Computed example of a mutant assay.
Amino acid sequence: MTGFAAARGAQGPWSWTWELRSVNGKGLDLRLRVPDWISGLEAALRARLAKALARGNVTLNLRLQAEDAGGHLRINPAHLDDVLNAIAEVEARAMARGLSLAPARPGDVLSVRGVLETAGGDEDTGALKEALCADFEEVLADFVAMRRSEGAALHALLDGHLSDIARLTDAAATAAEGRRADAAQALQDSLARVMDGAAGADPARVAQELAMIAVKAEVTEEIGRLRAHVDAARDLLASGAPVGRKLDFLTQEFNREANTLCAKAQSSALTAIGLELKVAVDQMREQVQNVE
């Protein structure tokens, strides 16, 4: 979900600079810093971003400035009167409460938006908005292309993690099969010890308890679910759609099965594989946070 794009543009007396960037995020968080005096611009840009992106913390900055086109600065009398009236009201209310305020300086008044403007600045901003929106399409296209390029690299990385998980799952299946004979012998030995030390115990009942222990140590289902999760993750990666949330959920399922595998291991070889599996799943989970 990381990406960056920047560009410059101009039309008539206006020139501008775009800067669009994104970092990882669970949802789509759009933060736009654009001139608010251009009616409808922010809403139009926000709609374009929301249509093109699904996840990430996205920041868009637009710096706009007027070039010297023979115009000159002038005071907007209506705005100036409004500002002066507001200052007078503030001072009057302050005096009524016994407060003394520092006098307003001309520079402070002129810095208020709308008081000082460029001659001709009262023109319709519709044409400027259309020019900016058209120019933004190329910026957004470059931004999406960069994210796709990084996405392709991330796809290969995730596929590698899935191959590691699949390999470790197969190794776990082999280790589980290899311990089967030892586990059966261990159960028989346990049954013999119990029967020798518990006169009058019901052999059927003891055998039932040992059978339950054996069932609890069985990892066939966990291995099957791990393989199913690997297939599901590969299908998601191949879909080409935004799958970050689904992959995030799958990594939680991977981790759950790996934990259960370790808990049921009863074998140093299977425990070692389970721990490697947990590491591979954790590495995949970190990368999944970058997926849209």
Score class of each variant (00 low, 15 high):
283 Q>D: 13
276 E>A: 10
250 L>I: 11
259 N>F: 06
260 T>A: 08
211 A>W: 10
249 F>C: 03
196 D>R: 15
192 A>L: 14
242 P>I: 05
248 D>N: 06
211 A>Q: 13
201 A>E: 05
276 E>F: 05
189 D>M: 13
190 S>C: 13
284 M>V: 07
211 A>C: 12
196 D>Q: 15
223 I>R: 08
213 I>T: 07
243 V>T: 03
203 P>H: 14
263 A>I: 07
266 Q>C: 09
220 T>C: 09
230 V>A: 05
203 P>N: 07
270 L>T: 03
257 E>A: 03
226 L>G: 00
270 L>K: 01
200 G>D: 10
218 E>Q: 09
202 D>L: 07
215 V>Y: 12
269 A>T: 14
271 T>Y: 00
282 D>A: 15
222 E>N: 05
202 D>T: 04
226 L>W: 05
250 L>M: 11
247 L>F: 08
276 E>Q: 08
230 V>R: 00
278 K>I: 09
218 E>L: 11
277 L>R: 01
241 A>G: 07
221 E>T: 15
221 E>K: 11
187 L>Q: 14
273 I>M: 06
226 L>P: 03
254 F>R: 01
229 H>F: 13
275 L>Y: 07
242 P>R: 00
239 S>G: 06
208 Q>L: 15
273 I>R: 02
224 G>H: 12
208 Q>W: 14
283 Q>F: 05
227 R>T: 09
276 E>R: 06
271 T>R: 05
209 E>G: 13
268 S>F: 12
203 P>V: 09
191 L>Q: 15
254 F>Y: 11
206 V>G: 00
211 A>S: 13
259 N>R: 07
283 Q>Y: 04
219 V>E: 02
222 E>I: 02
193 R>S: 08
262 C>Q: 08
242 P>D: 04
252 Q>T: 05
211 A>G: 10
202 D>I: 09
261 L>N: 02
215 V>F: 12
238 A>T: 12
267 S>T: 04
274 G>Y: 01
195 M>V: 03
192 A>I: 10
233 A>W: 02
229 H>L: 15
203 P>K: 12
233 A>S: 11
265 A>K: 01
281 V>C: 03
259 N>H: 09
220 T>Q: 12
251 T>A: 10
224 G>Q: 10
192 A>M: 13
276 E>H: 01
263 A>W: 07
239 S>T: 09
248 D>L: 09
195 M>F: 05
265 A>H: 02
274 G>L: 00
273 I>P: 01
189 D>K: 08
233 A>L: 08
243 V>A: 04
276 E>W: 06
269 A>Y: 02
285 R>C: 01
202 D>Q: 10
243 V>I: 07
271 T>A: 08
247 L>G: 08
278 K>H: 03
283 Q>K: 15
